[in-house]
Design a binder for these strands. Structure first.
Lengths: 204, 204
DNA sequence: TGTATTCAATACAGAACTGTATCCTACTGA
DNA sequence: TCAGTAGGATACAGTTCTGTATTGAATACA
């Protein structure tokens, strides 16, 4: 059973790209459907033959963004787990490389988060995504600790939550004051201390 | 020289209150001037005799919110510095008590932050406010450490930045998943480790 | 008491945005 | 080559929002 062959079209994808940019610039509510279409080089007609409404686009955009993020993580994981990098470098490197454009990613994901805090059904979707994300990181942490014969005195999941919290909190500060707080400063200054405190060598 | 006596009116203040609520519910762009007026119990006429535009209101709201926050901190500081609480309890307690409604405060301050990331002039104002806020916390940290004969191996300012980052990052996670991550978990689990690592007793 | 002033309500004009209905073009496959 | 169709463009109607002009009521002050 074959799927019906559909005409090749990247309109949808280009609209999503445009939306990503415009949302980052003006926020969800600040971006009109027309803004998005202009950016993508289409008219609103194209929009409405691909999406039912802006809300539907937001959902699709979120899904697409999530998929890409998880893909990128999946691609990065094997390297990180095998290369001789420290646990923290692996985790922090992943956080950075998975989202190349820190600024845009921060704007978009923060928008998503605000949206989710106001709309329970969006929160569910976001939480699922974030849970998958954390799970990936948690697995990475577990693999690396196991490989190097280390043990953690707290659940790896909890440690990952901390790393994410520090990373996101620090990122906001860095984006606001790039001069005063270069990217990664807080993470690299303080997380090693935490790691040292929760880690001990097997057989102790 | 006396200021000209003006008729007593709290319309402006009530509009600001309404705006705070509506912004928290729908975000800046999502809230129309009419929404705000409805919430405050006025018509748009009242709005436009008090503010020139929504942007002007946003600025005023930010200023008012900032003033109140700094006032509240100033009121809390003396108690905290003198009472026999630990350094971390003092700092974390301040962060919590200064903003009673965590959810609303998070929504509003995150909105402000997004706005600032898109508008340099707003970023300046926000950065000034955050700098004052950090300075207050830094002073608190310095007073407490000095009083208890402790020293820090990192600048107090840097430590404060970390606490804020963890607090804000953790708050986002907690608001999204209150069950999975009760408020304060990450802070109270990990920050003591950091503090232990950067602290030593005078005369060592 | 009467006049001036302040400020919120009302009424209105114009702009922006959304969503739909229709048209047009280019590709598809027989 | 020629219907059929997918899908983007165009045109339009309705709604919502903003900002201004005017009105009216309450207050301050002479």
């Amino acid at each position: 059973m074959e799927l019906p062959k559909r005409r090749r079209s990247n309109t949808r994808a280009r609209l999503l790209e445009g939306a990503l940019e415009v949302f980052a610039e003006r926020g969800f509510h600040g971006a009109s459907v027309e803004d998005i279409c202009d950016r993508a080089g289409f008219t609103r007609g194209a929009f409405y033959s691909n999406f039912g409404s802006k809300d539907e686009l937001v959902l699709a955009l979120f899904q697409a963004t999530t998929d890409r993020l998880l893909e990128q993580i999946a691609a990065l994981l094997p390297d990180l787990a095998n290369q001789p990098v420290t646990l923290l470098d692996a985790v922090l490197g992943l956080l950075d490389e998975a989202a190349p454009d820190q600024r845009q990613w921060h704007l978009i994901s923060t928008e998503f988060t605000l949206h989710a805090l106001r709309h329970p059904e969006a929160a569910e979707a976001l939480n699922r995504q974030r849970a998958m994300f954390r799970d990936q990181l948690t697995r990475l942490v577990e693999e690396i600790t196991k490989a190097s014969g280390l043990r953690l005195s707290v659940p790896a999941q909890q440690f990952v939550r901390l790393v994410i919290a520090v990373h996101e909190g620090a990122r906001a500060q860095t984006l606001l004051e790039p001069e005063q707080l270069p990217a990664g400063t807080l993470e690299h200054t303080f997380l090693p201390m935490v790691l040292a405190a929760v880690t001990w060598t097997e057989g102790d």
